[in-house]
Each structure stands twice: as C-alpha cells, then as structure tokens.
Deep mutational scan, measured.
Amino acid sequence: MSIQHFRVALIPFFAAFCLPVFAHPETLVKVKDAEDQLGARVGYIELDLNSGKILESFRPEERFPMMSTFKVLLCGAVLSRVDAGQEQLGRRIHYSQNDLVEYSPVTEKHLTDGMTVRELCSAAITMSDNTAANLLLTTIGGPKELTAFLHNMGDHVTRLDRWEPELNEAIPNDERDTTMPAAMATTLRKLLTGELLTLASRQQLIDWMEADKVAGPLLRSALPAGWFIADKSGAGERGSRGIIAALGPDGKPSRIVVIYTTGSQATMDERNRQIAEIGASLIKHW
C-alpha cells in the first residue's frame, strides 16, 4: 500500500482519535458579512469528516447552483462504474471539434489522439474542462443518470439537468442544476469515506481534487503551510461562485467545507476574496 493510499485508508482512524471539535460562531459572522459585502445569498456548511456531524452552517438547506462543483460527483459516478466493471479508466475516447464547448483548455489539445477516461476526469476536476465533463456525462448516460446515481446514494436534493455550459445559467428560483450545502457536503463525505467506492477509487477521487489547479484564489489562499486540501470550485452566471473541499491540518483532511453564493453584482475577484476570507476565519478558529 502506498503512503497516499495509507493516508486515505486511515482518515477515519486518525479522526477518531482527534480531540473533540467545537464550532466557532466567528466564522458564521464572516459568512454573514460576506453576504453584506456581496449583496447576495451565501450558503455555508462545515462537517466533521469522521462523524458527519454538522459543526457550523448557514442557509444549509437553500438551493444554490452547483456550477462546476458537480464534476466531482460526476467522476465519482464514473469511478463507481469502474468498480462495477462497467468502465475502464484506460479506455480512450475520441471526439471532434464539434464536441468542444466553451472553456476546454485540455480537451482542445487532444482532438487528434483523444483522451482516456482517467485523463478526462483529471481534466474535468483539476482544470474544470467543460468538454471533458460533457464527454464523461455521455459515458454514464447524461445528466439524468448522474441525478439517479445521487438518488441511489441517498441524495434526493442534488440534481443535474443540463450539460456544460448551460448548467451554469443560475436563474433565480430555478431548481435545475442545483444542490443544497448540506446535501453536497453529505454526498461528498460519502464519496470520500464511505463504502460506495473502493479504496482505490476513493484515493483516485481525492487525488484529482488535491491536484486542483484553478481554485488557488479561494480556500487555498488562506491555508497555512502543512495543511491538506482537496477541492473543486465552480463559477456561473449572475454572480455565482462555489467551492467544495476536504481539508485539515497535519497533512490530512478532517472536515468537509461547502460554500456557495449566487445573485451578486460583485466582480469575480471580490467573490473570490470573500470566500478566501471565510476560509481564513475557519482556519483561525479551527
């Protein structure tokens, strides 16, 4: 067993022997301040990774656009098919120029040779490549099948209805392509620590998230040296922004954090800054 596999296998073990965790309302004060600064709703939840206990939450059962955070769930569904012998990570998928959609920095470079399922998941999570996500959605049967996968996990809230990039439209009061912070946090925890996926697939999923290259201005910008984070960000229309993450000190994750916002007129930089400040408060009061 590799060191990384050992780390993920012992996530519940280490967490069980940690000192009790206590909620700190100071972080919620910052979440509410972010709402004021952005002029928009902000949803927040913080779960203990081992027990699933909610440590703090704000608007945990209000719907927010998922945006690209759905790509972690998508690759979880792909990995479940791999575990069941219905898919192979090494299978190569070929596609054409007509398949390319807006923001496809990886797939646009491989029109000639195609990409493997493993490479597509890596591109979808680490670079948020939209064509990679659409190609992977095709392998599982489309958005409705991802929703069905989530329902089978016990998540009857999260739903995907459309493809990239239309799913980022974020129309107010439109339930399409949305989740709730509580539902997303619980589902992410199941994917990373539950028995739904094999140990190898859980490790692969967290490795992809740990290698995320496009979430630097968010929670990662607030992390002290030595902290662990595996995350996936999302951005959408109407001032929408979000991030889902597993993080913790001492090089291992111990909490799940989900943050979503929508309806702001603020710039992307300002949305990023507010999420980073929430992260800084979380870490300060850990």
Rank of each mutant, 00 (worst) to 15 (best):
N130R: 00
A132T: 02
L223M: 11
T107K: 01
E62G: 07
N168F: 03
E277Q: 10
E119R: 05
E35R: 03
T193G: 15
T262S: 11
L74P: 01
D250C: 12
A230L: 05
E56W: 05
A215C: 04
R271C: 08
Q203S: 13
I45P: 00
H156N: 14
H151V: 12
M67W: 01
S104A: 08
R220F: 03
T107G: 05
A124F: 00
V42M: 10
D99I: 09
K30V: 11
E26T: 14
A148G: 14
H110E: 07
L188P: 00
Y95D: 01
V117Q: 03
R7W: 08
K109C: 09
M153V: 11
K252Y: 12
V8I: 14
D231N: 05
R118H: 15
Q274L: 15
K213G: 08
L205D: 00
S96R: 12
C18W: 12
L196M: 13
S122D: 15
S254T: 14
D155N: 06
T27G: 03
I140F: 06
S240K: 01
A215R: 04
M127P: 01
K109N: 12
L167R: 02
K232V: 00
L191V: 09
L218M: 10
L120V: 05
L137M: 11
G142R: 04
N134S: 04
T126S: 13
D231W: 03
K284S: 14
P253C: 11
F58R: 09
L136P: 00
A235G: 11
I278W: 02
F17Y: 12
T138W: 10
M67P: 00
I278Q: 00
E169W: 14
M180H: 14
L167M: 12
I45H: 05
S281C: 12
A84L: 13
K53Q: 12
T138S: 14
G234C: 06
D33I: 14
I93V: 14
L191T: 06
G90L: 10
N168I: 05
E62K: 06
A211D: 15
S2I: 15
A245L: 03
T107A: 10
S240I: 01
V42L: 13
F22C: 14
G114D: 04
I171Y: 14
V78H: 03
M209T: 02
M66I: 11
L73W: 03
L55H: 08
P25F: 08
D33F: 03
L120C: 06
A200H: 15
L188F: 13
I206W: 13
A225G: 14
L10K: 05
N50C: 08
T261D: 01
L150R: 00
E164G: 00
T198A: 11
V106I: 14
L111P: 07
G85Y: 08
I54H: 11
E210F: 10
S80M: 12
S57Y: 11
I125T: 07
A9S: 15
S264M: 06
M184A: 07
F17V: 15
K232S: 00
P249T: 08
T261W: 04
F64V: 04
G52D: 08
E119I: 01
A235F: 02
V117T: 07
L74E: 04
K30I: 09
F14I: 13
R220D: 03
A23E: 05
A182P: 06
G85A: 10
A148Q: 14
E46Q: 12
C121S: 05
V29D: 14
K284P: 03
A246L: 14
T27K: 04
M268E: 06
K213T: 09
M180P: 03
S254A: 15
I125D: 01
R202P: 01
Q88F: 13
A23K: 05
F6K: 13
K109P: 07
I140W: 03
T193E: 14
E108V: 14
L135P: 00
G76L: 05
A225R: 13
G251R: 10
S122N: 15
T198N: 13
A9Y: 14
K284L: 13
A16Q: 12
E145G: 15
T139D: 11
V214W: 05
M115W: 02
S240V: 02
R176F: 08
Q86Y: 13
C75D: 02
L89A: 07
H94I: 15
D155H: 01
S96Y: 11
G154M: 06
I244E: 01
A15W: 15
H285R: 11
G242K: 00
E169G: 14
H94E: 11
K144V: 12
K30Q: 09
V31C: 13
E145L: 09
S122C: 08
I54K: 07
L223A: 10
M180W: 11
N152V: 10
G216A: 11
A40P: 03
S2C: 08
H110N: 08
E62Y: 08
G242E: 01
S96H: 11
F6W: 08
R92K: 12
T139M: 10
K252W: 09
N168A: 08
K284R: 14
L28T: 09
Y103T: 05
G263A: 08
D99A: 10
A182N: 09
F58L: 11
A230E: 01
L49E: 03
H156L: 11
E270G: 08
S122I: 13
I283C: 09
K32R: 14
Y95P: 04
Q265V: 12
F149D: 06
S233D: 00
A170P: 08
R238K: 13
L219T: 03
P105Y: 05
R63L: 09
G154T: 05
P20S: 08
A182G: 13
F228K: 08
G251E: 11
G234Y: 02
Q88P: 05
T139G: 10
V257E: 02
A280N: 13
T158N: 01
V31L: 11
S2D: 07
A266V: 12
R271E: 05
D113G: 11
D161L: 03
D155A: 01
E166P: 06
G154R: 07
T198H: 12
R238V: 09
L196P: 13
L47K: 04
T112P: 14
L38H: 07
E35A: 07
H110G: 08
E175G: 10
R59P: 00
G216H: 08
L146Y: 06
I54W: 08
L73H: 07
A276R: 13
G39S: 13
